[in-house]
Design a protein around this nucleic acid. Structure first.
Length: 245
DNA sequence: GGCGATAGCCCATCTTAGTA
DNA sequence: TACTAAGATGGGCTATCGCC
């Protein structure tokens, strides 16, 4: 009996030209150390390589390797400042993809996952790549919609006259779109499973609330309502069912 | 079960930039 | 100029997975 021909090495099927390179990006997120670094960067801030190594609980050498991979995959961007290198998420698309993945990852264990105190703080209010997310972010978006403060635009929303009037009550005057990024659009909230507002307008609103002292940065991505914020901001938002610690 | 490929880890070392 | 600190790189070790 002749020897059977050796089987050709299994090669992955050729990707369809219409197929997104999901395996490639999923492999980046699949590693625990990398996912911890990405989660750390979801605040939208820059972080040094050393800071990210500590966040991921790995040595600087290991972190450096992971950062190089994420840089190559265009998940993150890097800026050199002297002998430091500062990393941030590459763009809002990456941030939204990570939030969406988190939503899928905790499907089925949602309530128990959010029962821990530190998670509860994140659920109430957090920074999502520069804008406000969590229950407070959802309420802010809902309040704008309820007052017809947003009008549909090709890229998402513009601020309507009613919206300008309401924002003026909050002491904020919307600036003109910069065209560097989308102005205002929906972003599905990982913890609330409802939309909050993202984009230039949302970034500026969070900054405004921080400058007014209505909100303050907590640990990591967490954002906290200050006593002034409870007095000045909360009464202006719809759905006062939000509980504050 | 053995083997090879792959990926992740850490240690040691190197490079670069800031500082005294 | 030497020292120090931060980050990158190379090499070796280990674990896992797929194939035979």
């Amino acid at each position: 009996m002749p020897p059977s021909p050796s089987r050709a090495p299994a090669s992955p099927p050729a990707p369809s030209p219409h197929e997104p390179r999901l395996a490639r990006v999923a492999a980046i997120v699949a590693d625990p150390a990398r996912s911890r670094m990405l989660a750390y960067l979801l605040s939208g801030d820059y972080a040094s390589a050393g800071e990210l190594a500590r966040a991921a609980s790995v040595t600087p050498a290991t972190a450096s390797g992971h950062l190089a991979k994420m840089l190559e995959a265009q998940f993150i961007a890097c800026e050199q400042r002297g002998r430091h290198r500062y990393y941030r998420l590459a763009d809002a698309d990456v941030a939204h993809a990570l939030e969406s993945l988190a939503l899928v990852a905790e499907r089925g264990t949602h309530e128990e996952a959010w029962s821990r105190p530190e998670r509860e703080r994140l659920r109430q209010a957090r920074c999502c790549y520069g804008h406000l997310a969590g229950a407070l972010g959802v309420r802010l978006f809902g309040s704008l919609l309820q007052r017809e403060g947003l009008s549909p635009s090709p890229e998402g929303f513009d601020v309507s006259e009613a919206g300008r009037a309401w924002l003026a009550e909050l002491g904020y005057t919307p600036s003109a779109p910069t065209r560097k990024r989308r102005y205002a659009y929906r972003c599905l909230d990982w913890s609330e499973r409802r939309d909050h507002l993202a984009g230039q307008l949302a970034d500026e609103l969070l900054q405004h609330f921080l400058e007014r002292g209505w909100l303050r940065r907590g640990t990591g991505r967490a954002v906290e309502l200050t006593p002034t914020g409870v007095q000045e901001l909360l009464p202006r938002l719809e759905d006062s069912a939000l509980t504050m610690p």
